[in-house]
């Protein structure tokens, strides 16, 4: 805008971001509180973090969550990228409307419905609930997020590059691997990250589809949170936030560098 930023805009941004971040900051601050009473500041301490290391239940849950999220993100990235390719590169195929509907619906579907319906499916086909049922459920809803992220990249890129490669005799597979995939790779990486964090974060769907021996970290946190606010949970949550934030920032830096490099290359051509 010509006049630069108005006072109104600066104020709304400041208040908006304060609202978004203040609760998280308070949670982190109170995780270093020496007092067991979360509301009274008893001095700085890291004892809740040391206590975590001996909480075997929590560590087990964290390990389960990490494995579920890794398998989920890997499979969902492959399936989601294929779904995005089908939606953008295949024109009108039979059953496209149904397919598009199934890809977009889970984005807004209330989690209780997804969770309950998958649980009933697993029971109906006699699949025992545990690690794999949670993972299957997570792949199903996260692949749709991957598809949307990759699709938005696919619609905005220059198809003449693909056509040129094909005209020069590259097979469709080779064209995909050497032209399409490098161009969409930041979006694929972002989709992987999104699937990973959505899986890490999910409570409701896991609550329905998990079984004994596959308690995830959010399920464990939830069962303790219901009993009230404690500094240990603040500490777990802080570690969780730090890990996810670091991951997101790292990926956004990497993809940004790639974008810059690509733009520089495009300009040089």
């Amino acid at each position: 805008m010509r006049r630069g930023m108005s006072i109104f805009n600066v104020t709304s941004l400041t208040l908006g971001f304060a609202f978004l971040y203040l609760p998280i900051v308070l949670l982190v601050v109170y995780s270093f509180n020496d007092s067991r009473l979360v509301t009274v500041w008893g001095g700085f301490s890291t004892r809740w973090y040391t206590a975590l290391l001996s909480n075997q239940q929590l560590l087990d849950a964290a390990w389960v969550t990490l494995r579920v999220a890794l398998v989920t993100a890997t499979v969902a990235t492959v399936l989601g990228t294929l779904a995005a390719l089908a939606l953008t590169r295949m024109g009108r195929f039979r059953g496209r409307t149904l397919f598009a509907g199934m890809v977009y619906a889970p984005l807004v579907m209330p989690e209780v419905i997804t969770g309950l319906s998958l649980l009933l499916l697993f029971v109906a086909i006699g699949l025992e609930r545990g690690f794999w049922t949670v993972t299957l459920a997570h792949i199903t809803f996260t692949l749709c997020f991957v598809a949307v992220v990759v699709q938005s990249r696919l619609v905005s890129f220059d198809r003449s590059l693909e056509e040129a490669a094909m005209d020069l005799g590259a097979t469709p597979l080779k064209t995909f691997l050497t032209v399409t995939l490098p161009i969409i790779s930041p979006a694929v990486a972002a989709g992987f990250m999104l699937a990973f964090t959505l899986s890490l974060d999910d409570l409701v769907i896991a609550n329905f589809t998990s079984g004994p021996g596959a308690t995830t970290l959010p399920m464990r946190i939830y069962s303790q949170v219901r009993l009230g606010v404690t500094p240990e949970i603040n500490a777990v949550c802080t570690l969780f936030i730090v890990a996810v934030t670091a991951l997101v920032l790292a990926v956004s830096l990497v993809t940004k560098r790639e974008t810059l490099a690509r733009e520089a290359a495009a300009r040089a051509m």
Binding site: V225, V229, C237
Partner: peptide
Amino acid sequence: LIAVILPFWTSFLIRVYAWMGILA
């Protein structure tokens, strides 16, 4: 943009939990 997306990537459950401590 990253500043808006970041809380969205941080756990939903944790953000709700944070309000329990604020509103108690």
